[in-house]
Design a binder for these strands. Sequence first.
DNA 1: TTTATTTGACCGAG
DNA 2: CTCGGTCAAATAAA
Length: 312
Amino acid sequence: MERNSNGREWEKMKKELNELMTEGRDYAQQLKSQLGSTSSQESREHLAKKILESYHKSLTIMNYSGELDQVSPHSHGTGSPKSDDSDHQEPHIIQSSKKSMPRWTRKVIIAPGVVIDRALDDGFSWRKYGQKDILGAKFPRGYHRCTYRKSKGCEATKQVQRSNEDPMLFEIIYRGIHSCSQASNVGLIIPVQVLEPNQTQEQENLEIGKASLDTGHHNYNHQAHLHQTLNYPLPSTLNLESNNVMLQEKDHNIGFLGSTSYSDANYNFLASYDAGSASHSTSNSPSTIGLESPFENFGPSHPFGGFGGFYS
DNA sequence: TTTATTTGACCGAG
DNA sequence: CTCGGTCAAATAAA
């Protein structure tokens, strides 16, 4: 209703989303056309990777970051299947303090043996700028901002807080929308191979928490060799393995974007290939499809309406 | 070198 | 004052 500064943020978010999805659509289109031909496997993999990146980012923005990359049922879990598992994914967008930036929470449950860094990777590159001990929290909270804040003025930030009682649970609070179109180290998901099921994960987790919340490298070195198989060298740190993660969103759920029914017609046009996804290309071509008001579209099955209430 | 992380200082809100 | 968040200097990594 009342569109004020918050509404602006929303606009930005939608715009970003639109670009991201359009980009992904283009890549998918390319991939599709390459399927018939005998294009290089490499090329196709690259496209697939790009598509996943787009999804990843889009979902992150929307607050829904399900594990579409790979759906690996991480069963074993010393005590993982807790009630929390009831997937109540819900991203909550509140606009409280700060520059009235949208904010949402994501919860990530790490399966035993998973490298935390990797698990928490959401496709964007972040730079840690602080860590604080929080009252009542057993683990410190890490503060991160977009790596391109300086160069591109991207103001997105996130906080990572490890749960007190369940060290496998991380709560990530995102604030602000990425105004940068980075596609850096989205390590893509690698088929995870569950490694040694046991080991004192709790112990390790604790250690990590003490040491450095989000940079728990070292600890899992022994597993590294197991994953040398992956294709992409991870940029920093050696966290491979990854996706045994279970993502959950808390608070309000946005439902799912898949609901946006793109008309096939539109689908064909998108030849717009704005690799750079220029900021102006916001509504390039028919891409505006259902995204015109993404959130409204999602509404049908999900209370996005209530959503609006938050940031307005 | 440049870029990233660590960490205590600093600051505003309550 | 305390607390949560950020800054920035020192340090580490690349």
